[in-house]
Amino acid sequence: MTTRESAGDRAAGTTGQDGRRFASYYDRHVVKPPVWHERYVGGYLYLGGLAGASSVLAAGAELTGRPRLARAGKVAALTGISLSAAALIADLGRPERFVNMLRTFKPTSPMNMGSWLLAAYGPLAGAGAVTDLTGRFPAAGRAACYGAALLGPAVATYTAVLIGDTAVPAWHGGHREMPFMFAGSAMASAAGAALLAAPAAENAPARHAAVLGTVLELAAGRLMRRRMGMVAETYERGRAGSLLRAAETLGVLGAAGALAAARAPRPRAIAALSGAALLAASACLRLGVFAAGVASAEDPRYTVVPQRERLSAAAS
């Protein structure tokens, strides 16, 4: 009898941590938790952002005559985009069929659009970096650098659309603010790479970008969680919560260090440390967003309760 009772009670409803009752089927998830791997797809989000924003930074450096900052940006862009493409392919169940992504042109699929974007951006980022490092074809290299800077911002923000266009409550629920959070995080990480690689004499723009990017990321993230209702919990608890708190701490330290580096006694070391902190912050942010998505899909509460609220709002 006790089995029956508990089976019945478990099937009929679950009381959430906040005491709100909602019905579920044995507390099992309604939507499937993502089958994506955190290290690959989380890494893809991170590296794509780093690459895209680095291309913009490189173009700015090119335009303002800062060759070493430009080189740092171009190399970061090529490294980021190569690794991010590799991560995307590694995540596939059938990696040898990666090119099937380009067998159609499908605007309703952000992953398809993203693949076309990468197909256009990757070679430009590659040409920009290689011509800079070898010193050959400088005019073509400059054109590639500006071309990559045109597409780079899209590479950095489209990944928010990629994860937003899903039934995963924590991702879809943040689809308005996520692109801004990702833009800020991308900017800060590109600034971080530049702070590591470019000399102090040229990296003032990177120091400012570090601060602006971190502010944008934190502000957009706050707004996102405030607007998201109960699903915001998934960004505050568990693994996602730890990662996002680490991202915030590292980001603030990195940005502060970047600002201080100019006047510090050992600017090179401070800049490098800040750069590393900013890179780590951005990685933590993307992994944290990924983990929040998984947590929100695993618990039926985050699917059922907001949908119930939507239904009663529509009825009243």
């Binding site: 700015g60 911002p153 692109p179 990702f182 833009a183 900017m187 400012h208 970008a209």
Partner: peptide, 17 residues
Amino acid sequence: HAAVAAVTLVCGIAVAF
């Protein structure tokens, strides 16, 4: 939203320069 965010990124870096 992603398009506006992309423009924001460009503006942010322009301001940094």
